[in-house]
Every structure is written in structure tokens, then in C-alpha cells.
């Protein structure tokens, strides 16, 4: 086990939960129906659209944060030994 693993697992679990939370807010019928309204409008767009675009942009921020933290921890420096099986 790598010394980075427990921390890395907690971090992954946190970001998976956060990203799934944005999906939950976009798709869970009671929440989705609550947001499924025209008013208040923004730039003319109905609130229903602003809700989904906004949540997706929040998810994009979570992806970016996840990546930056993984990158800083060295999780991207994977070194793989090639094994010829063919």
C-alpha cells in the first residue's frame, strides 16, 4: 500500500460525493420538479435551465479541484512497467 492511499481514498470519496450531489439535484424528481419553473429568469433564460447549467458548472469546479489536489499529491506520476503478453 502506498503511503498516499488512505488520504487519496478519502479525497476521491469526497469529490465523487460532491459531483454526484450536483447530479442528484439535477435529476431527483422532487428537487428537479421544484426547480422546473420559468421564474426567476436570468438573461431571459428560465430558472429550470439556469439550475441545470449552474449545477453543471459547479460540477466542473469540483472536477478541477479534484484534479489539482490529485496533481499536487503526485497521483498523476504513475509509472507502469510494460509486460508483453502477446
Amino acid at each position: 500500500m502506498s503511503f498516499t492511499r488512505p488520504h487519496s481514498r478519502r479525497r476521491s470519496a469526497l469529490f465523487i460525493t460532491l459531483i454526484l450531489a450536483t447530479t442528484f439535484l439535477s435529476t431527483y424528481p422532487p428537487v428537479f420538479l421544484w426547480a422546473n419553473t420559468i421564474e426567476p429568469r436570468w438573461l431571459g433564460l428560465p430558472f429550470a435551465m439556469v439550475w441545470h447549467i449552474g449545477l453543471s458548472l459547479v460540477a466542473a469546479v469540483f472536477f478541477a479541484s479534484w484534479y489539482l489536489l490529485e496533481s499536487r499529491s503526485g497521483a498523476m506520476e504513475l509509472d507502469v512497467e510494460v509486460e508483453k503478453v502477446r
Binding site: M1, F3, T4, G74, A75, L78, D79
Partner: peptide, 13 residues
């Protein structure tokens, strides 16, 4: 997978 992560940890350290 564990080996690749282990190496990544060492490189980072």
C-alpha cells in the same frame, strides 16, 4: 494498481 500507485508516491516524495 498498487505497484503503480506506490511508484507514484515515491516519485512525488
Amino acid at each position: 494498481i498498487a505497484d503503480a500507485r506506490e511508484r507514484a508516491g515515491k516519485v512525488s516524495a
